[in-house]
Amino acid sequence: MTHLAPDQRLSLAERDPADARDPHLARCDRCRAEVDALRDVLRAAKEIEVPEPSPLFWDHLSHRVAEGIRREPVPSRGWWLSPTWSALASLSAAIVVLVAISLWVWRPGAARPAAPSAIRSGPEFALDVLPVAAPGDDEAWQVVASLTEGIDVDTVDATGIGPAPGSIEEAATELSAVERAELIRILRVETAESGTEG
């Protein structure tokens, strides 16, 4: 005969005997004795109450606690509740999304947009087919825009993660479409070469 598992015995012992009818218990002396013993111990444990302190004790306790916290600084809010950290978290999420999208778009083997012919180093590049999506049409841009819409420029600058004056990132933001396409082409060539060497 399969006996009741410990959690089944525990569950039956915790219930009122009248509500704890189980077909197995009715025919298994061993399980019934186990459940009865657990119930007996539970009953014995429940008999002990905490003595009620003097009625004056509670106010005295509150007073002691109040005295104690008077010497303490006001607790600070969790960093996740701070507006600055909330903004940073949104910004970080946006950057992660942007990086992920870039990696996906430029993953090895992905279909590449053609480079502009005007600045080509090979015949396969054509400026007129370079997909430079307007922000409003690009789903990736929409995701980024929705994540960052509550963040102003000052917040970005304050975090120190915006492009620094004179930095490569800032220069990249000022490239024309043609210059961007050429930069992309150069990066692709460099990436392909370093991949071959590696």
Binding site: P53, R64, V65, G68, I69, P75
Partner: peptide, 20 residues
């Protein structure tokens, strides 16, 4: 128990900012 209760509330006060 009284000392410990006081201690618990002081700890809680110090950690209150971490209550999510």
């Amino acid at each position: 128990a009284a000392d410990l209760t006081q201690d618990v509330f002081l700890r809680a006060y110090r950690a209150l900012g971490r209550f999510k």
